[in-house]
Design a protein around this nucleic acid. Structure first.
Length: 876
DNA sequence: CGGATCGAC
DNA sequence: CTATGTCGATCCG
């Protein structure tokens, strides 16, 4: 059994089982040795639900590895040889564009939270401490680490390892403040430095260094202060606190000077005096220290200033790129720094024996997979590059290659736009639906608040559940109109929660965690539209009271129970108030001349579920349903049946002529005369029918069309136009989408034409779309492989085309290889992982290094252009 | 698109 | 008793 679990990753922690042996446990010192630590952890762990789940996950990884090994066995030496050529060509390109001109610094505060706590409470100084709670620790000081107490370890286990451990609760406000102080310093060296979390940052000091070369000494000297450290991180300073902090501050400076590679004697005019003259209290300074002009000196200066200002130490790495800098800062931690000289040899020397696990972006799983291939160090990573290119996805092996060549980004990306916002909570088991719903709502409320702070609205809501066995599930649903309020989010979350509850009924869902996430945020353009189009659904005077009465049967009980609580009542009160408010707001914004457009768009927007009674089932039960295509009222109240009908309807229309389409266009146009209720129904139908894409299309029509003028420069008008549509239909899942896209985009376009003054770009071209050749003839011919397809199902057909395209690309990539590996095989064992968040981006890649993309790269871009070309030639 | 997973802090 | 919270990315179906 492999019990090398890594649950979290904070600071320089390395997982609480796997790497225990790497603890710096000097003989005779206080602490535990590796075996003891493992034993204690095992005892505390084994048999727990958590552990069982860990085993399960481990097995999954093992299966992945097995698959990979099977694939590996199928690889012929021929293939490997070809791959080698390909990879080496790529490597050559990489090598040629190696950039050593930048000086990148990575600053990493040592055991940040713990250090802050120790600074502010000297009693903790000599003790092993950890910051966090009995259930989870965020970090530990170095003393505690000798006992195996690590970040991401539950406190109760840490206590078993180290009974004297002091666990300090988190004080985020404090850490944020300290972090701010540090950042103020960093900004002086690189105004656009890139903070990572509270305790880390990347700086590009290339420019700064140049400037500094001619600086006089006095511009590079700093006095050693002993006072005013006390103020730092303190909000309400009492007299005794001040004293304490001063004491803490006094002992701070010597820490820095212990640094083996830090300040030299010349720089420090009188180190020893500092200690001797302690009784000389509040005098501003004793001595000053002057720093040189080299990168090392600059970083020493930064660390010195950080320490003077905050009383905390930091480690740092200096290197020609971010990946290397990050690994450097790890080298002499704590309170040390390390530099890789900006020459290739130095870089390679550093990389050489580096365990792959040290590489940012290579985590527990990837490490294990690579280990299975006999790859432990970066050198081996390089040696196996050909094999890796056959076993892993392109992004993955590119990343591996970058790593093994010591390449990384030098661009500290500005913080990008947020992609999602979420909230989740862990709790002791909750198994009643009633509590689950109310918890869900609470989460929605909190999330809505957070969203509001940033003025965000998103189209996708994801519900996350973890049961008491630690199994995690996520359920997502995306709607056409972005949501942001508690009510809007809850409507969706509740729905998903309900299906999950129903899914296991009559057994209860036994949850230990619930989370809600909103993603798919609108850009500014979209925001305007959504805001206006939602007006129609907020009819004043809609009584929530009647809605309450419509609650479904099974959960009715829960609901009524819940509604007895004051919490519930306030919820509905708030809801009512909110609704009225938004009505007023929105009505003010509503421009009269856009009535048509809005109404149409409204139809496609999902409805505000007015009867959002908790857990209500079958909203549709008592309503008659109208097909949005043929506009016949449907007998069945069953949504699925209706959906099938609509599908038929759509397909039927698709095969007919454009005349038909314009007819139904009219229907749509007229439909805004319908009662709010039927609108609602239709929107619901749209939503259930997964026609999201068509609206995406409409939303993007504006944007897309505004680009048309540009794209026509490159492509003949007709091709650009039809090509675009064809591509969309290829990418779309269903025929209905295709139809609706055509239908709606032309509709919208014509409506937009009335807005010429405002948006002249929409007036260009965009003739009513003609259906593509494949559809016209009623015979589907794949534009890629040129074979006639048996199916008349458009979505199946599209899928085929998709596969064909992919095949072609893979084929092209491996054209010389005797027996090409199928794309599926490749994918099967690709890493699901090379996570490269924006905030916590893998410095290795993820950033455009101009000139590094090879012409024959099969990046997504290439794929796209490839498919475009194929389609275009097909259309000729 | 939705779901699962990885990786980071 | 007691195993986090938030985020972004990637891959697959």
């Amino acid at each position: 059994m492999d019990s090398t679990k890594k649950i979290g990753n904070t600071d320089d922690d390395d997982g609480f089982l796997l790497r225990m042996g790497l603890n710096d446990n000097k003989a005779g010192m206080q602490g535990l040795d590796k075996e003891k630590i493992n034993k204690i952890i095992m005892e505390a762990t084994k048999g727990s639900r958590f552990y069982e789940n860990e085993l399960k996950k481990d097995q999954q990884v093992n299966q992945r590895i097995e698959k990979m090994m099977q694939l590996k066995d199928k690889i012929t030496s021929q293939q490997l040889l070809k791959a080698q050529l390909q990879v080496d060509k790529h490597a050559l390109d990489l090598e040629q564009s190696r950039d050593l001109s930048c000086t990148i610094v990575h600053i990493d505060m040592d055991a940040f939270y713990a250090s802050v706590e120790m600074r502010d409470n000297p009693e903790l100084k000599e003790k092993p401490i950890a910051v966090g709670s009995m259930s989870m620790l965020s970090t530990s000081n170095y003393h505690a680490r000798r006992f195996g107490v690590r970040a991401a370890m539950p406190g109760f286990i840490a206590k078993k390892l180290c009974p004297h451990l002091t666990i300090v609760p988190l004080n985020f406000k404090k850490y944020e403040e300290v972090s701010k102080q540090v950042r103020e310093i960093l900004a002086e060296y690189d105004p656009s430095f890139m903070p990572i979390g509270l305790d880390e940052a990347y700086l590009n000091i290339t420019e700064y260094l140049e400037e500094r070369q001619n600086w006089p000494e006095d511009k590079r000297s700093y006095s050693i202060k002993r006072e005013n450290i006390a103020k730092n991180g303190k909000q309400d300073v009492t007299a005794t606190d001040e004293l304490k902090s001063n004491e803490a501050a006094h002992s701070v400076s010597p820490i820095l000077f212990e640094d083996n590679i830090s300040i030299t004697e010349e720089q420090l005019v009188a180190t020893s005096q500092l200690c001797n003259e302690e009784q000389r209290d509040k005098e501003l300074l004793l001595n000053s220290v002057v720093f040189g002009t080299s990168a090392e000196e600059v970083v020493k200066e930064i660390r010195f200033r950080i320490e003077q200002k905050t009383g905390l130490t930091a480690s740092a790495g200096i290197a020609p790129n971010m990946m290397l800098a990050k690994m450097c800062s790890d080298q002499n931690k704590p309170n040390g720094q390390y530099r890789i000289s900006p020459d290739r040899q130095s870089v390679m020397d550093f990389i050489k024996d580096l365990p792959i696990r040290k590489v940012p972006g290579i985590g527990k799983v990837t490490e294990k997979m690579l280990k299975a291939l006999g790859i432990l160090t970066c050198t081996e990573l390089y040696q196996q590059r050909a094999l890796l290119s056959l076993l892993f996805s392109e992004t993955s092996w590119h990343n591996f290659l970058d790593v093994s060549l010591g390449l990384g980004s030098t661009e500290l990306e500005k913080y990008g736009e947020r992609k999602s916002m979420s909230i989740e909570r862990t709790f002791s088991e909750i198994n009643t639906a009633e509590e689950q719903y109310s918890l869900c709502q609470e989460l929605c409320r909190d999330l809505a608040q957070d969203l509001q702070k940033e003025g965000l609205k998103g189209k996708t809501v994801t519900l996350k559940l973890k049961n008491v066995s630690f199994e995690v599930k996520t359920r997502a649903s995306t709607v056409l109109a972005a949501v942001s309020t508690e009510e809007e989010i809850f409507v969706l979350a509740k729905d998903m929660l309900r299906t999950e509850i129903d899914g296991v009924a009559p057994l209860p869902l036994r949850l230990r965690l619930m989370g809600v996430r909103v993603s798919g945020f609108l850009n500014e353009e979209e925001k305007k539209y959504q805001q206006r189009s939602i007006i129609n659904f907020l009819k004043p005077g809609k009584q929530t009271d009647t809605a309450l009465l419509q609650s479904g049967k099974s959960s009715h009980e829960h609901f009524t129970k819940a509604s007895e609580t004051t919490h519930r009542e306030s919820f509905f009160d708030k809801k009512r108030a909110a609704r009225q408010e938004s009505n007023q707001e929105l009505l003010i914004n509503k421009p009269a001349n856009k009535q048509n457009l809005h109404d149409i768009k409204s139809l496609i927007n999902p409805v505000e579920e007015t009867n959002d009674t908790i857990g209500s089932k079958n909203l549709n039960e008592c309503q008659s349903l109208t097909c949005p295509v043929c506009f016949e009222e449907q007998r069945s109240s069953n949504l699925e049946a209706l959906n099938r009908h609509i599908d038929k309807c759509l397909n039927g229309i698709l095969e007919k002529d454009n005349a038909e389409i314009s007819a139904s266009e009219n229907s749509w146009e007229n439909s805004h005369h319908f009662s709010p209720d039927s609108k609602k129904k239709m929107s619901e139908i749209c939503q259930k029918n997964k026609m999201n894409k068509s609206v995406d299309m409409i939303e993007s029509t504006k944007v897309a069309d505004s680009f048309t003028s540009i794209s026509t420069e490159a492509f003949p008008k007709v091709v650009a136009n039809t090509g675009k549509e064809r591509e969309h239909s290829l990418l779309s899942e269903t025929a209905s989408n295709t139809y609706l896209e055509q239908n709606f985009s032309s509709k919208i376009t014509s409506l937009e034409n009335t807005e010429q003054v405002e948006k002249p770009e929409y007036t260009q071209e965009t003739e009513p779309s003609h259906s593509s050749g494949a559809i016209e003839d009623n015979v589907l011919v794949c534009p890629v492989c040129n074979t006639e397809q048996k199916t008349t199902d458009l979505s199946l057909f599209n899928r085929h085309v998709d596969i064909c395209l992919n095949k072609g690309i893979i084929q092209e990539l491996t054209e010389q290889i005797v027996c090409p590996i199928k794309s599926q095989d490749v994918c099967n064992c690709s890493l699901g992982s090379m996570g490269r968040g924006h905030q916590y981006m893998n410095p290795t890649t993820g950033i455009k290094r101009p000139g590094l993309t090879t012409p024959q790269s099969t990046s997504k871009k290439a794929k796209q252009s490839n498919s475009k070309q194929t389609i275009e030639t097909f259309l000729k």
